[in-house]
Design a protein around this nucleic acid. Sequence first.
DNA 1: CGCGAAAATGAGGGGAACCTCAAGTTCGCT
DNA 2: AGCGAACTTGAGGTTCCCCTCATTTTCGCG
Lengths: 187, 187
Amino acid sequence: MPTDARPLRRDAQRNRELLVAAAREVFGAKGLDAPLEEIARRAGVAIGTLYNRFPTRATLIEAAFAGLIDEWAAIGEQALRADDPWQGLADFAMRTCEMQSVDRGLTEVCVGTLPGTPAIEAAKVRAWQVTSRLVERVRESGRLRADFQPGDLPLAIAAATRVAEISPDDDAWRRHLGYLLDGFRAR
Amino acid sequence: MPTDARPLRRDAQRNRELLVAAAREVFGAKGLDAPLEEIARRAGVAIGTLYNRFPTRATLIEAAFAGLIDEWAAIGEQALRADDPWQGLADFAMRTCEMQSVDRGLTEVCVGTLPGTPAIEAAKVRAWQVTSRLVERVRESGRLRADFQPGDLPLAIAAATRVAEISPDDDAWRRHLGYLLDGFRAR
DNA sequence: CGCGAAAATGAGGGGAACCTCAAGTTCGCT
DNA sequence: AGCGAACTTGAGGTTCCCCTCATTTTCGCG
């Protein structure tokens, strides 16, 4: 499937980048339903330009978060290579929460409140595969409680992220995730 | 502090009740930022009537959730009288989540996304006191991990509620809360 | 240069929700 | 019944955000 867009003119390319940067900031601070006009304003560009480049909100969201999601996937791969499977899982969960706790937009992308573009759905599938492998690896080590479901890890991360949203104390969500991870252990 | 409102005329009283009932339904389904016009419509009343009775959104929210919050406090009192302190805590957490999992408005009231009226703030303080006592009771029994903070219980409930929001599977949040409670135990 | 294609612009139409208020209706008391 | 106070009504002004498109500006190539 050729994304056969011919190369953008130089000014258009620059504006595209300004828009993506602005979108990252605004979505991060206010969530994915932030006004697009604010993003255009912050990029120093007219609203029509935003619509020229990104015909729908979803395309802009996708462009804004593609990089972050790749980064996230990389964290997952790295966690899979950790010596200690348990440590890999714990690190992955912590770092994911950390990313989400400072970026409301990313949280919403991951929680999937919105439908999601194809690319984002694909990224989620990839991420789900990584978490599954992380979980399986721990299970094989025999340290995971028997009734644990693979899908519980993403849910736990989403749950811990809510703690980060509610509590101003930055340690609260770390503590919470710690409780959860302890709860995951085989008795 | 006399709530010295003179008694409403009978028709006004009836409309007030219709509005509160409609508000409970709509807030429960769509959250606290649901359109007020929808509530008026569902109550079979003009929008102006809603504003006559409830000059601000906050007053309507308060009226809609006062009953539920009392019910919640009662659950807390009951949990305090449980024979087994641990069981009391677990039941309280489960039942609270259960209430919130079917009522998006209640969740938002409890999570405190919005500022909150005096009465709701007061109810939260009351609830916080109940949870503190529940936690202290368990701590005295020696079964609680040492680094647990009293404020962690409400946070945990809020976190488990997010699982209920995300996962269609009704067991997911129960399982999740189970992990958490296990994580709370002294090692 | 100079020209055509590409891109930027921002006023403006449209919709959703907020809230107000002047006019009309209903209640309840005598 | 009749009257005044209490209550209801809903059209409409306001704000905020959506998205479009005719016009103007910029780019980059020959």
